[in-house]
Amino acid sequence: MQKKPDRRTVLNRILYLWAAVTSVPIISSIIRFIFPPARAFVGSKVIGTVDEMQPNTGKVVQLGERPVIVITTKDGEPIAYGANCTHLGCVVRYREERGDIYCACHGSVFNIEGQPVSGPASRPLEEIPIKIENDQVSITTA
């Protein structure tokens, strides 16, 4: 017949169980604390007037916390993409001489539609909505 545990053993077991149960919310709180709360920027930003958008040029502007590349095509049409390369996140630049978008970190090249054409990037650049109202060009969060 199994020996009945004495009072000290029972109290010890209760103590261990209590410590184990308490540690779960403590550890969970610490883990939750170190993950920052999501603060997605929602809004728009005026980047200039239509006259200021010179054909075949590109510039990087900030929308919320993220960089956005605004390109005016050779036809004068403004387009915008998230400026972080879809490979490893470096900020890309517009190459006027080739009419493409280039990331110097690992050599990824995107065409003017934001599609990857060479290099290690496999996903297209994220398109950013662009609006023209009363001669003002603005970009907005998707």
Partner: peptide, 26 residues
């Protein structure tokens, strides 16, 4: 906001991983 400059590389001890990521196909 500045595009990545040409020839950017990490410290030497991360170069094997960096170079492998650079040459591996998508």
């Amino acid at each position: 906001l500045k595009p990545a400059p040409e020839g950017i590389k990490p410290e030497w001890y991360f170069l094997p991983l960096y170079q492998t990521l650079k040459i591996v196909p998508p």
